Structures are given as C-alpha cells and as structure tokens.
Amino acid sequence: MADPRSQVEHEEEDGASAGELLIEACRRNNTDLLADVISSCGGEEKAAEVLNNTKTVLGNYIYHEAALRGNYEVIDMLLDQEGFECDPINTREGDTPLHSAIRFINSLPPTPPSPDNEPSAAYNLISMMLEAGSDASIRNKANLTAVQLLDPRNVELKRLFQEAAEEAEREREIAGLEAEEHEEEALEDDYAGSGSDSDFDPEEFKRQQEEKKKELAELKAAKAEA
C-alpha cells in the first residue's frame, strides 16, 4: 500500500502537471482526461503511485475530490485501477473518501422515494465504494465514522451501512472458523503421527470438527443468500 502521507512530484506536461490534471479530472468528472493521465504513467504500478499520492494544497487526495462532488463515473474508474487506495485520510478533517461522499450526499436536497423502489444515485455511489473496499469503521478527527456523519433521515443509506456491517461480520466469522478448522486439522495430524497415549479422543475431536464444518457451511449459505 502506498504511503498516503507522501506526495509525488510530477513532471510538467502541456503546461500542467500530471497531478494537476488528475485533480481537474476528478473535480470535473472527466473520465477521458483521467484515462489519458493513467495511460501516460507507464504501467499499473506507476499509475497507482500517482493516483494514491496526488493531493491538493488543502490536503485532499483525488478520491476525496471526486467523492465531495459525487462524481460516480470517475470514482468507478479510479476503483478499477490496480493498487488504488480506498481509504486515504485527508489533512483537515481526517476524513476518508467515504466521509467525503456522505458530506456531499448530506448537502443534497431531499428526494422522494422512487415509485419503482429503485435505489437512488446516492445509494449506488456508496454501495460501489463499500463493495470496492471502503472501510466504514474508520473515524475522522471528530471521532465520527461515515455513517455517523449521515443525515439520520436518510433511511436508505442507513440500511445500506447496516447491511454492509452485517456482511463484514459474517466475513470475519467465516475467516475465523476457517482458520480454526485448519489449526485443528493440523493438531489432529500431530496426534495421529505421534501415537500419543494421552486423553485425546480422536472420535470426540472428529465430532467437534464436523459440528464446526456444519456451522461454517451454514454461514457461507447465509452469505450466499444475503
């Protein structure tokens, strides 16, 4: 992961540096300009370095600049870049881009629910950011997460954040059970190989493993249905 505190110096190009062009592209939702700058970087690794380290004079990264304006298309392109950092922290507020996107959404006038129950543009934006890896648990300098910044009247996004939190918890449970399963399998192999005459009961151990495998399968099934 690139160090978000460092700042890359870019060579001048047609009167503007690559960093200045990136900032302009993200502010204006200009995907063509963004694509041009990325293609001029000379490879994915260099592009990621430039994208992750370009900052404005006020300490915003380009992801913040796009998120503060709700620029979906540019954000979509940024998130497609290999090695792109999803949670850079800006200087002034200590915000992630997810915080910035919520600030933008809070500034919009209320919109009535869609008669077809279609998700709003704000929902689609935040959903994309969360799916790409934005961490909703990060707190800014005011000790607030992005969801704590959210206008409490925005039920649609509150529900989205809750669903994302539940999904993250399921992922942690599955990862924990899988790690425990691997450890227990290794332990069983050790006992079997040593011919230990201790109180270890292979049959009871096997039964416990089967129960945990069943629990893991149920968690994975619940995740698939969610």
Rank of each mutant, 00 (worst) to 15 (best):
R5I: 06
E11Y: 05
E12V: 13
D14H: 11
D14K: 09
G15K: 01
S17E: 03
G19M: 10
C26T: 01
N30D: 15
D32A: 14
E45G: 00
A47T: 00
A47N: 00
V50N: 00
K55Q: 11
T56Q: 00
L58V: 13
G59E: 07
Y61C: 05
I62N: 02
A67N: 01
R69I: 04
D76K: 15
E85P: 10
C86E: 08
C86G: 05
P88W: 03
I89W: 05
I89A: 06
N90S: 08
T91W: 09
T91Y: 14
H99Q: 08
S107Q: 06
T111N: 00
P112S: 08
P113C: 03
S114Y: 07
S114D: 15
P115A: 02
P119R: 01
A121C: 03
A122Y: 03
N124E: 05
M128R: 12
S134C: 15
S134Y: 05
A136N: 06
S137H: 06
N140F: 01
T145D: 09
Q148G: 10
Q148A: 11
Q148P: 12
L149R: 09
L150C: 09
P152C: 05
P152Q: 06
K158G: 12
K158Q: 13
R159I: 15
F161N: 06
R170Y: 07
E173H: 02
G195K: 04
P202N: 08
E210K: 14
K212H: 14
K220T: 03
K223S: 13
K223M: 13
